[in-house]
Design a binder for these strands. Structure first.
Lengths: 339, 339
DNA sequence: CCCCGTCCCGTGAACGTTCACGGGAACGTT
DNA sequence: AACGTTCCCGTGAACGTTCACGGGACGGGG
């Protein structure tokens, strides 16, 4: 009489084990089972143990949906990332997870595998599973709007037009200016750039570079494209030096590309920073692992992730959203061995 | 008469907007609203549009809990990772996300921040939010059992005792043996190792190294501990060379440590691989970024992640679980410039 | 004129849990 | 003996959605 028959021996064994089954098996009511499982106190010790045993015996697991329906306390946000293996996004994701955990939120992560066409599908699926979304999107704003149906969204590193969106701006103007200033101070006058390739419009970082170069009376035209990978950085550097052999310093779209350029420079026999100075963008931890360590216009990825989470939180609780000027991450030059 | 009053102007504005509100506002029934929103067909074009407008006007968003309760189709798994910023775990996580996405599952990611005491809290919270768990756990198996209450679990890189757990075994014996063999063939006889520090028991990788060294008649005692970071690898190498100056080759616990050792070797003025050969473990993409590229006993992280997801899937659908011999990832030597 | 089919829409029921309330038993107090 | 307290426990209701079913309106064919 200690326990009734266990396992799948009921009339239809495919049905889910509910709180009712446990109650019946333990000879008590639903509410008592609920009390036992949730550690409420209006219950006798022996009864509690009996219920717990019955639950274990039947393999009972409460339905998160039913529970979530009645107590509206769990919030879940979606994090959309183009490529988790890219160290930059890894850091942003880690920071976002950190901030979310501090608030007791759950984070569902989606990796769109760098395919913009995946974004819509993801959005559609996400829309019915989370309370808000944070992340990177490359598709059109109207498309975003169509698929998210009024869900709070925070876009990272991208401008927004519609009021219901929010976005974290990345301001690298001062940082890039400082980088060019530093290179000039070191005596460089022929400064090139490895820009993002495969994009319709020239990158913002390219604009910042151009402005900084012009401010120092430097020709900003020495630019080559590079695919977003270390190999891409290597090839980009070869192309740049092929077209502009006079270049003695390079600013790159990001650190991955910079690391590739660094590796290629070594292979070409050019000493860094003596014969070729390199400054990246992002300030990844990765930059400290290579030799010489990478100088970079560093972004505070921790701040980036936490700002995004903070803002989506305000949007979905209805609190005052952060003003645009607070939603800005300023990049600043961090010098190491490579420049 | 196009649309009723919008915004929060009801009697109590704090209540959630339900499908009922939309129905009332559009002058139809719940079911019709449901039809419009879910793209069912038994509905007239104009009605559908009217409902959609009303929904948008009111800012209606369906409750994922209510929906999940009635249609039992969405499955969500939890992914528990000690430190997402660690490139190895990043790769495993990315692979797991990939596999889950292919199955249409959602993945909630938890980063325990390398603190074992966080695991229990995570587990407790996770238990009521996901259908199954995949990941790394360092705490006791009984503790795991206590907090998960019969939820399917797949442990990675760790043995299990209880039947309800499943685990992915990592077999590096042959790979480490091959690594040592290769070093011996290159003429090395004084081979050291940088092991994981801060662990109660010596690591499995250490055991594999010891066995391989003995098989070649090599003293396996030249070992130093290293913290799990690049800096740790550097310090470890200094300690190892301090205690055993005769060492000409090093096998490390993992690639991060190896990269640190590589960097330190350069700083010490020892040429790699001529004066110091280095072989890591894990086979991270990171290894290709440093100079010289890192040789490593490589793990197929993609397989690792997909196996774990596959197995947790079988456990929670009740399909035949994969047998232990299929739940094994074999590491194999991948040579590059560093050895 | 009746019957049947198609198109569109609405009504009860169910999903599985927790909350608010009520109530009986045992015990002590006036 | 009547009454208040404390300790356990059970019963309706509610959460918000979808499914299964039923039914009215309309049109066409016999």
């Amino acid at each position: 009489m200690l326990c009734r028959m266990a396992e799948a021996s009921g009339p239809d064994s495919s049905r889910r084990v509910t709180i009712h089954d446990v109650a019946r098996s333990a000879g008590v009511s639903r509410q008592t089972v609920s009390r036992a499982l949730n550690g409420k106190d209006e219950i006798e010790r022996s009864t509690k143990q009996r219920v717990l045993d019955a639950a274990r015996e039947l393999g009972y697991r409460p339905s998160r949906f039913a529970r979530g329906l009645v107590r509206q306390d769990t919030t879940t946000i979606g994090l959309v990332i183009p490529d988790l293996r890219n160290p930059f996004f890894t850091e942003v994701a880690a920071s976002a997870l950190e901030s979310a955990r501090a608030r007791g939120w759950h984070v569902v992560v989606y990796d769109t595998a760098d395919r913009p066409e995946e974004e819509l599908g993801t959005l559609q699926v996400i829309g019915s599973q989370v309370d808000g979304v944070v992340g990177y999107f490359s598709c059109d704003e109207d498309e975003l709007d169509r698929w998210t149906r009024g869900m709070p969204m925070v876009l990272i590193g991208r401008e927004h037009r519609m009021a219901r969106f929010s976005s974290i701006r990345i301001d690298g103007e001062a940082g890039v200016h400082a980088a060019v200033t530093h290179l000039v101070a070191k005596g460089h006058t022929m400064i090139g750039m490895l820009d993002h390739v495969n994009r319709a419009e020239p990158s913002l970082r390219r604009d910042w570079f151009t402005a900084a170069a012009l401010a120092h009376g430097i020709d900003p035209g020495r630019v080559a494209g590079a695919a977003q990978s270390a190999d891409g950085g290597g090839e980009g550097l070869r192309a740049l030096l092929g077209a502009h052999p006079e270049v003695t310093a390079v600013f790159t779209f990001n650190d991955i590309v910079a690391v590739g350029a660094l590796r290629e420079a070594r292979r070409l026999g050019r000493r860094v920073p003596a014969e070729l100075a390199v400054i990246g963008f992002d300030g990844l931890q990765l930059g400290a692992l290579v030799e010489p360590p990478l100088s970079s216009v560093a972004l505070d990825t921790r701040l980036l992730g936490s700002l995004a989470v903070e803002q989506v939180g305000r949007l979905l609780t209805g609190a005052d959203p952060l003003p645009p000027e607070a939603l800005e991450v300023r990049a600043e030059l961090r010098l190491a061995g490579s420049a």
